[in-house]
């Protein structure tokens, strides 16, 4: 199955339950703003409980951070794997985003904190740390990064949380550009993107914090768009 995922994650031949889970992951990873109530109904029809659906959404969110942390730092793959190395299509473009007036605005579907309180609590502590200003990055820097990522994910709720954080200086433009690229095309990250952050005064720890804000927001916006 792992080899199938490498070849064609949308064409997996799986039993209905696993097919529903992999379909949710593909949709949420690539186009989270398109998730409709009917998609959730299909998961329930495939015997998934609301707790299991929320768990699946949270896993996609977590790996939306992990993959970006890996791509933005260029850590070497170090797990043993019998699988062939993934061939990356650098020419692949992200899907076009709808205009802000067409972004989803709907009431919550499922209450993450009620369905999975331990996991939601862990995610809340993660958020609290990522958005705490330190010497590495100011509160405004963090909001600028989060807003830029949320905009590319069509997350109207996060955009209103960070409404004050439109980039208004060359420094903030650089931070926003980094967040946009890491959100849209993580496979194209290169050392020059990290150097751009260094050119505005970020040291390695601050670069890590910038990556952490973008990674967190990629998780949080997907969870919000899926669950409300």
């Amino acid at each position: 199955m792992a080899a199938q995922v490498l070849r064609d994650p949308r064409g997996l031949v799986l039993p209905p339950r696993e097919r529903a889970l992999s379909g949710l992951a593909a949709l949420l990873a690539e186009a989270p703003w398109t998730l409709e109530d009917e998609d959730v109904d299909r998961l329930r029809a495939a015997s998934l409980s609301d707790e299991e659906i929320a768990h699946a959404v949270a896993i996609v969110g977590m790996f939306s951070h992990f993959t970006r942390a890996a791509d933005a730092t260029a850590i070497a793959p170090d797990y043993t794997s019998p699988l062939p190395r993934l061939e990356i299509d650098m020419s692949r473009e992200p899907l076009p985003r709808p205009a802000p007036e067409d972004w989803p605005r709907r009431p919550a579907r499922l209450r993450f904190d009620r369905l999975l309180p331990d996991i939601a609590g862990g995610f809340a502590r993660w958020r609290d740390y990522v958005f705490t200003a330190t010497a590495a990055l100011s509160e405004q820097d963090r909001a600028t990064l989060a807003r830029a990522a949320a905009f590319q994910l069509c997350d109207a709720g996060a955009l209103s949380e960070h409404a004050h954080a439109s980039p208004s200086s060359p420094r903030e433009e650089t931070l926003a550009g980094f967040a946009e690229k890491l959100t849209l095309t993580p496979w194209r990250m290169e050392q020059a993107d990290v150097e751009a952050l260094r050119s505005i005064g970020l040291d390695d720890r601050a670069v890590l914090h910038a990556i952490a804000v973008v990674g967190y927001q990629n998780q949080a916006s997907r969870v919000r768009l899926a669950l409300g």
Partner: peptide, 29 residues
């Protein structure tokens, strides 16, 4: 946060399937 995620209702195999598809969609090595 990720440690808490390992204690959710889906099985380990389902967890790995979702993680692998998410990673593959993002073309992450």
């Amino acid at each position: 946060a990720s440690g808490a995620l390992h204690k959710g209702p889906l099985s380990s195999a389902e967890y790995e399937l979702i993680a692998a598809v998410t990673s593959r969609m993002g073309q992450c090595l």
